[in-house]
Design a protein around this nucleic acid. Structure first.
Lengths: 333, 333
DNA sequence: TTGGCTATGTAAAGCGCTTTACTAGCGATA
DNA sequence: TATCGCTAGTAAAGCGCTTTACATAGCCAA
């Protein structure tokens, strides 16, 4: 690999001149510029980014740490982050942690050690304080999608409460009164908020939120199935289920079918996220759409603003919308 | 941030000693080790990876360049690559290119400039020679999933021909004779091979491959829909369609339904890939499963072998399997 | 003729680490 | 006593770049 010095020698100037020329920090006469350009072309010179980063202390790169890149939600988020970052000349380094606390900590450490300029953090656990400790006080972090309590960095979330409210209201307007909610991990911000939105809709309609019909566990298909089993094995059944993620919804779908019931014939179902498969399942899922791409883009914008010393909003809420398909009908009972 | 020298000063030894101690290149008496450890703890020292990489010329990191991380196939591949690389102490930097030639080239360049030790390349286009030019002769690259002609680096593929053969044979055994194939981009290796496997199965059964029933375009839902429209608007219809990807298959699904036909009642359908949604669509899709995780793991293993100067197999074919669900039935006509 | 300005650069230090040589001191050995 | 070998380190160069401070030549004005 040719180095800057090689180019300088070839062009008959000093390395300083070449460096400053390449970084637009010097005005050179045309003849000199031509010689340098020729030398670069001849030697196929490409600057060593590592050396540059070490020297300047800037990397023009950001990291995205994510629980699981194989999860389409985070994958889409990652794609959006990358698109937006590239548009601003930044590279992005994506890591997935598997959702384990120690892996998250390692990932953050490793990224910091590799000297990325900033970090976008998504998680799907509730933190025990260790993440907060690592992240607190940093000026180059933004939180995306899910909160970490005690970390006062810019945050980009979706309007979770509104989403659940819209979903519940839709069910209520279709005539449902007996509505159950299946949600993600207890105490996770999005879960709290979705539960709150659900409760508000029920309250407004004068409908009770039955404790036995609020099941909190995981944003997974398996948990959806397990929770649906609990619901369906009880003596009285809800006429509708609000699943706090589309993954939960397909678990519900499967179990409902296994119980010989039909959706939406016997039970109506609303999901959350509008993942790509939501339109493809049988029946196509009525769900709450999250603006995934916008979330990723905004997170990058806020991070880059932060890096430039500006002060992006402490918290941004992106709007969600109800997408009606065919998993909701009027109650038959 | 504390540096090595800070630690050395704190511990009352030279930076050399600390460096060599941390890299296990020196035996120090317990007392000295304790002083260094204490200094590290006190200063919360973490080595600067950039500096280390610049100095050693090794990065303990590999890059994965991929057309689109938002595509669950590549996302799953990425997750597997990351898992396996981490297990060997390597970081991985994932980039997606959007499937554009220049973006691919940029990505490869950028990765090379950031001095990753090696590169795993996946693509979904047929190369015009520019990628081949960039990659040819490199000793630290492996190709995954799709070939780039003229690049003689280790390759990890799936047994495409066998997959299509199994799918076609399954249809034939169910009684189908009029079978169409909808495939990805013309001249892409996987497409060629799947077409070949299809043809072999038809030949063995003494069945003709009708040129009008072989449609090549893209591995996308849109193309699947477009191709299905062509097929269904003709005078005589196939009784079965072999879609060379599950994305194509769902496009087909949609169009078949729009034509008032049912799957598998009127037309049987087999997909390829066994993406997560294949089991969720209506009807659940019979498809060919690719061992995605194994592909990613093997690519990493072969790359690391390469980096250690070993010679992994020039080409590995991973087996596929037929997953029967409910999109195939005996022909009604 | 001198002083100063502009144009065109360069020398050298430094980013934080690794690594190759080298060495001071000391006990044991011949 | 001179030498050897071992222990416990160290000095300094180098990875490839950036950046600060300085330098020289030529020209113009006073």
């Amino acid at each position: 690999m040719a180095t800057l010095s090689d180019v300088a020698a070839e062009a008959g100037v000093s390395p300083t001149a070449v460096s400053r020329y390449l970084n637009n920090r010097i005005d050179l006469p045309q003849a000199t510029r031509d010689r340098i350009d020729a030398a670069i072309a001849k030697l196929d010179y490409r600057p060593n980014l590592l050396a540059r980063r070490l020297s300047t202390g800037k990397s023009e790169a950001i990291a995205l740490v994510t629980p699981d890149i194989a999860n389409p939600f985070f994958a889409e988020l990652a794609a959006a982050v990358e698109r937006q970052a590239h548009a601003s000349g930044y590279s992005v380094y994506i890591t997935s942690t598997g959702g384990h606390a120690d892996a998250e900590i390692n990932a953050i450490r490793r990224m910091a050690d590799s000297h990325v300029d900033g970090l976008i953090m998504t998680t799907n656990r509730v933190d025990d304080g260790s993440l907060a400790g690592l992240l607190a006080g940093r000026e180059n972090v933004v939180l995306l999608d899910e909160d970490i309590v005690g970390v006062s960095v810019p945050r980009v979330f979706v309007d979770n409460a509104e989403g659940a409210y819209l979903a519940a209201k839709h069910l209520i307007e279709m005539g449902h009164k007996d509505i159950a909610l299946i949600g993600g991990p207890h105490r996770l911000m999005s879960v709290n908020e979705r539960l709150a939105g659900f409760t508000r809709a029920m309250d407004e309609a004068g409908l009770p939120v039955r404790p036995g019909w609020v099941l909190l566990g995981d944003y997974t298909r398996d948990y959806g199935a397990a929770a649906a089993s609990v619901l369906l094995d009880a003596v009285d059944l809800p006429t509708a289920i609000l699943a706090c993620s589309d993954y939960i919804a397909i678990g519900v779908l499967q179990v409902v079918r296994e119980h010989g019931l039909s959706i939406p014939g016997d039970i109506s179902l609303v999901g959350f996220d509008d993942m790509a498969f939501a339109a493809l399942v049988d029946p196509p899922l009525t769900t709450i759409r999250q603006p995934v791409a916008a979330m990723g883009e905004l997170a990058v914008k806020h991070l880059l603003a932060l890096l430039e010393g500006q002060t992006p909003p402490a918290e941004t809420r992106l709007p969600v919308e109800l997408v009606t398909r065919q998993s909701v009908a009027a109650p038959s009972r």
